[in-house]
Computed example of a mutant assay.
Amino acid sequence: MTTVAHTPPSGTRHTVADDIAGVCEAARTHRAYGEEHSTLHPQVWEALRSSPLPRAALPKHCGGLEWGAPHIVEAVRVVAAADPSAGWAAAIHAPAGAFLARLDPPLAKELCPPSETAVAAPVIGGSSVPAGTTAPAGDRMRLQGRWPLVTSAPQLTLAALAARTEEGTRWWLVPGTELRVEDDWDAVGLRGSASHSVSCDTLVPAGHSVCLTDPARIDGALYRFPLYGLMAACIAAVAEATAERALEAFAALAQTARPRHATGSLAHLPAAQEHYAAASARLSAASAFMREAAGQAWHDAVRGQVENAARARLRAAGAHLAATSAEVCQSVFEAAGAAGLYRSSPLEGCWRDAAVASRHALVAAHGRRLAGAQMLTGSAGGHL
């Protein structure tokens, strides 16, 4: 995604990278920690919590920043370039503040009191798997269930957990202190994301739930931008950054690796050259499609309304970029041959991380089907 800059009161030029420099430095320094411990290093968690990212999409009346959608996506991509697992955490938490824009402001403030410090900003995440059940309990609802794949589960201060109701699926906002976290995240990729299962049996105020397909209760370009599309774009940005790193790693490895029976380095083999050129072109094309679709949707949101056709293109672009990124990582991993098998090379890690990222429901087959349904039948608008 294209870097979005804004000008602070001092008049000096300020970029996305400036906003998250501390997160990126910590993520690069402790990248290997997540592979070994299935969670980010404590210094990375602290840097994330203290950064603007948890407040990026949070309403201003909750102490949020209400960044533009392109700004949020670019910030996620930059963090993911430092470490995909840290980028994944950013991809989940940065857009999640927009959930509270779907509550009446007084209720949102109850869940997220305004604060002058980024340290006090909420860490919001959850699960869209409707694994919960609800039942009336006086003026509250009893929420029970077990939800898998909850990113940063031990760090959440507020969890949005999906449950089916008579009105459809709703996300119930539960304090992190009410969650029981199961230490079961042992995946092949994005190992540092701590995407554990959580469960709860708790009473939730009836008003503390949202439907993500409902319009926001407050106006603003960020909240007119499709929330599902924003989350999908953030996830795709993690895959994109991972594929970019894989291409860089392959180019570096190709200068020194000498395949058996070859007279020169891998870089001089026609087959390797073809693989690299094709992979670079595919990623560039998918990235350009993502930039165009996201840029058009943001332009429409700023002007007033994002039509369903633009929403479908945004979802299709996110799914395509995630899938293409995974294919690129696999392609250069295979093209590296035996030289790519060693963990001293980033190639195998990129392949694993991109494979996991591309399986998220927002950018996997379900996301493509929704986009295609809207394009062909006009029937998926509310879920885009």
Rank of each mutant, 00 (worst) to 15 (best):
L143Y: 09
A319H: 01
G382H: 12
Q273H: 12
C211S: 14
V332G: 13
S284A: 13
A80I: 04
Q155W: 07
V123K: 05
L173S: 05
C62L: 08
T2L: 06
A56M: 03
L58T: 04
C112D: 01
A98I: 00
L230T: 01
H93A: 15
L103Q: 04
A262T: 09
A101Q: 10
F289E: 07
G382V: 02
V332S: 01
G340N: 10
A89D: 02
W172S: 03
Y276E: 10
V78T: 14
Y342F: 15
T157Q: 04
V198L: 04
P205R: 14
L143R: 06
A361W: 05
A251T: 09
V238G: 04
S284N: 14
H360A: 13
R28K: 08
W172K: 04
R142K: 03
I20L: 07
A355N: 03
V332Y: 01
G220N: 11
H71P: 08
L230K: 07
G381C: 10
L149V: 10
L190H: 05
H275Y: 00
P136H: 11
A162W: 01
T133N: 09
A162V: 00
D186S: 14
G340S: 10
P270H: 10
G138K: 14
P148N: 02
R217Q: 15
P226S: 14
W88L: 05
T7S: 11
P130G: 07
I235H: 11
A336S: 06
S85E: 14
A86K: 15
W147Y: 08
V44C: 01
V306M: 06
L269W: 09
R368L: 09
A309E: 08
A216H: 13
V302T: 14
A120W: 06
V332Q: 03
V188P: 00
T15H: 02
E348T: 08
T29W: 03
W67S: 02
R55Y: 13
A135R: 11
A120L: 04
L347G: 02
R55G: 10
T263Q: 08
G63N: 06
W88K: 09
Y228I: 02
S345M: 06
